[in-house]
Amino acid sequence: MAKILVATVKPFAPAAVEGIEDIAQNANYEVALLEKYESNDQLLEAVADADALIVRSDKVTKEVIEAGKNLKIVVRGGAGYDNVDLEAATANNVVVMNTPGQNSNAVAELALGMMVYLARGGYNGKAGTELRGKSIGIHAYGNVGRYVGEIAKGFGMEVKAFDPFKEKAEIEKDGVKVVDSIEELYSTCQYVSLHIPSNDKTKKSIGYELLSKMPENGVLVNTARKEVIDEDGLVKAMEARADLQYISDIAPDNKDVFAEKFEGRYFFTPKKMGAQTAEANINAGIAAVNQIINFLEKDDRTFQVNK
């Protein structure tokens, strides 16, 4: 009987775990749980006899992959997969997948929720501003970006997008205006919602040059990864312009600078919370176990990311 290990420092919701176990057991797979583990040694021991591994934000390093002597597939429950060593996985013939789209609505709702929170001054009792009539630029029009646009239109915002990897017609059919460059997106939108992945090309790509182009009262909304932000450049831009604001669902490394210099002009969630809804949690867990079974039984590699 093949064994699926669910290893999560931040566990899936109980309903998600129950769903994973039901689906796996009905397909004659064993499920092992390693939740809230405190050391990497515990993960190394648990993965030793696993055929498949499901994680969330847990680090799947070369050491973990090599410890899994029977390991054939790793599924990251969520869209991002920079916590998995793809090179090591490929070298050891381990397929890596993510579960795109399962967390998308949760992340999009958080982005708009944080925008409302900051626009209203953190509900401090003073007059704020409204989102209706404001412009929002979506930097990368994937699953999350599409939902952000959909919700933003419901607020009455003007929605633009830049994504060189998407067909223009595909974006325009959603009633979204396509711009031709990143510079145009940042210079014409009061709000910019960031959804690019973290990789060698994007790390520290959002900094002073782009942010200084934003219109008056510009707001950068980051529900992607903190690594894509040039934090020194962001601080420089906010020092140069007292109207710029920054919202993120993960605090930057230089968060103390924000507390010292930019009171009322930023908001950070206590931890990365984009996928922290019951619905997203369940969706990602169920998708992960189904993808494992489909791969092991049908060689379905639809969501493989280490091709």
Rank of each mutant, 00 (worst) to 15 (best):
P11W: 02
P11L: 00
P14V: 03
A16E: 09
E18M: 09
E21R: 15
A24I: 03
N26K: 15
V31P: 03
K36P: 10
K36S: 07
K36Y: 05
N40D: 05
D41L: 14
Q42G: 05
L43M: 06
E45C: 11
A48F: 10
D51L: 03
S57F: 15
V60S: 12
K62S: 14
E63V: 00
I65V: 08
K72N: 14
I73W: 15
I73G: 04
V74A: 02
V75D: 06
Y81L: 07
N83V: 03
V84A: 12
V84S: 00
V84D: 08
D85T: 02
A88P: 14
A88I: 06
A89C: 04
M97L: 15
P100V: 00
G101F: 09
N103H: 04
S104M: 07
N105R: 06
V107Y: 09
E109A: 11
G113H: 13
M115Q: 09
V116S: 05
V116F: 00
Y117T: 07
Y117H: 08
L118E: 04
G121S: 10
N124A: 05
N124G: 03
A127Y: 12
A127D: 08
T129L: 15
G133N: 09
I136R: 12
G142A: 12
G142M: 08
G145R: 07
I151M: 06
G154E: 06
M157W: 04
V159I: 08
V159S: 11
F165L: 11
K166W: 08
K168E: 13
E170G: 11
E170Y: 02
I171A: 05
V179W: 15
E183P: 14
E184N: 13
E184F: 01
E184D: 10
S187C: 14
S187W: 09
Y191L: 03
Y191A: 03
H195D: 05
P197C: 04
S198P: 02
T202F: 10
K203V: 15
G207W: 01
E216V: 06
G218S: 01
D230W: 00
E231I: 00
G233N: 13
K236M: 13
A237H: 01
A240Y: 02
A242T: 12
D243R: 11
L244N: 12
Q245S: 03
Q245H: 08
Y246R: 13
A251T: 11
E263G: 13
G264F: 08
G264W: 08
F268H: 01
P270M: 11
K272N: 04
M273F: 13
M273T: 00
G274D: 03
G274I: 09
Q276R: 11
T277A: 00
A278L: 14
A278R: 10
E279L: 15
A284L: 07
A288Y: 11
Q291C: 01
F295C: 00
K298E: 08
K298G: 00
D299F: 14
V305S: 02
V305E: 02
N306T: 04
K307T: 15
